[in-house]
Design a protein around this nucleic acid. Structure first.
Length: 378
DNA sequence: GATATTTGACCTCA
DNA sequence: TGAGGTCAAATATC
């Protein structure tokens, strides 16, 4: 793969150093903000000022969003506690989205190289650089006969359409959406929705960037007031060492995010997902994540028929792979995390569900996605 | 009024 | 240069 790397030896390490410091600083800040958030969430809202409470929430959220954004701008390889190293060879093995039609599709060319841009003058390159480091993953959602295929499938978040484009060779135009809270909370999440050429009941939804906003699909029961997040992942061993283990966790998370009581099967090769829909609707999702560094090969999480809110049943497949977006430069030490967050503004008690040290989720996983009782369909 | 969508112009990469 | 992505003015919806 194309590695055009310049400053490697001297300046690189120099940069690396600064970068690491900066990242560490930011991470620290973020953690503190999280703690604050947590504290706030446990602080009984003054009877007098429910408004203020909301404001506080929002403010904290904004702070967090800023950290998140800053971190993801920095992002790219060599964040901070990157101790492990892996063979870079694998990175090249980009497993583009399996089910994507040959011609179209992304995986953005192997032009990666983070730092390269950072050196140049900011203005124009900054934006570009940011864009690169944004994670992206894809879901394929099939709308079955039962469900109204209204709007690009409600995934529980509210999006605002900001563009539409005819795509070369694609039958249907591609829609561009961004999080409604972009301007309010600086949430940079976006998604693209494209109807499949051959199967018009399938929509390919590409998400980009995580939600940093307060928006969330209500968390199921669980939410108790004690900081004992049931599902919480085991406290990460001091360091956010992200490796296969982490990746597994990520899956765990992913699964956990899908309500309990789901029948989940994890396979190794995502090729098969033909779950017949026992009842009404069927949704097949393919998640093609990027940014999992220790290449998890492609793991597929397959969920067989789980019942959803409305008694409809979906079957979906999660397939994740590297999207071409992942850089190809030799040293990638990215801290992936399986972050979970989701606090809720809506529900009175924000279920901030994670112990403090729960490290970062610089731009992380698609975990956020949930079919949720509250928001899905309807 | 605010807030969402549509749509052609504009920008950025390859 | 053109395909893909975004902006923003006009328009629609409430």
């Amino acid at each position: 793969m194309a590695h055009h790397h310049h400053h490697h030896a001297a300046s690189s390490s120099e940069w690396e150093h600064k970068c690491g410091g900066l990242a560490a600083e930011l991470t620290a800040g973020r953690e503190v903000a999280k703690q604050l958030q947590l504290i706030l969430s446990f602080t009984p809202p003054q009877p007098s000022s429910s408004e203020q409470a909301a404001t506080r929430e929002v403010l904290v959220q904004k702070i967090l969003a800023s950290y998140e954004n800053a971190l993801s701008m920095l992002s790219t390889p060599r964040m901070m506690p990157a101790q492990h190293h892996h063979d870079d060879g694998d990175i090249g093995t980009v497993v583009m989205m399996k089910s994507s039609p040959p011609g179209t599709r992304s995986g953005s060319p192997g032009s990666e190289d983070s730092d390269h841009d950072l050196f140049k003058d900011t203005t124009s390159s900054r934006k570009r650089n940011c864009r690169k480091s944004i994670p992206r993953w894809t879901h394929q959602v099939r709308v079955g006969p039962g469900m109204g295929l209204e709007g690009p499938l409600d995934d529980g978040f509210s999006w605002r359409k900001y563009g539409q484009k005819d795509i070369l060779g694609a039958k249907y135009p591609r829609g561009y959406y961004r999080c409604t809270l972009r301007n309010v909370q600086g949430c940079l999440a976006t998604k693209q929705v494209q109807r499949s050429d051959d199967d018009s009941t399938v929509f390919e939804i590409t998400y980009r960037g995580r939600h940093t906003c307060t928006q969330s699909q209500s968390q199921s029961p669980s939410t108790s007031s004690s900081p004992a997040p049931n599902n919480t992942v085991p406290p990460p061993p001091s360091e956010p060492a992200m490796t296969l283990a982490a990746d597994d966790r990520q899956h765990e998370q992913l699964l956990l995010n899908f309500r309990n009581g789901l029948n989940v099967v994890v396979t190794d090769d995502g090729s098969e997902f033909d779950c017949s829909p026992p009842t009404t609707a069927t949704a097949a999702s393919t998640y093609a994540g990027s940014l999992f560094f220790p290449p998890p090969q492609d793991a597929t999480v397959m969920m067989t028929s789980f019942s959803a809110p409305t008694s409809s049943t979906y079957s979906s497949v999660y397939h994740h792979s590297f999207s071409g977006a992942a850089s190809s430069s030799s040293n990638e030490n990215v801290n992936i995390s399986y972050g979970r967050e989701q606090s809720t503004t809506a529900a009175a008690a924000p279920p901030v569900d994670f112990p403090f040290g729960n490290m970062d989720h610089l731009f992380d996983d698609p975990t956020t996605f949930t079919f949720d009782n509250s928001g899905f369909f309807s």
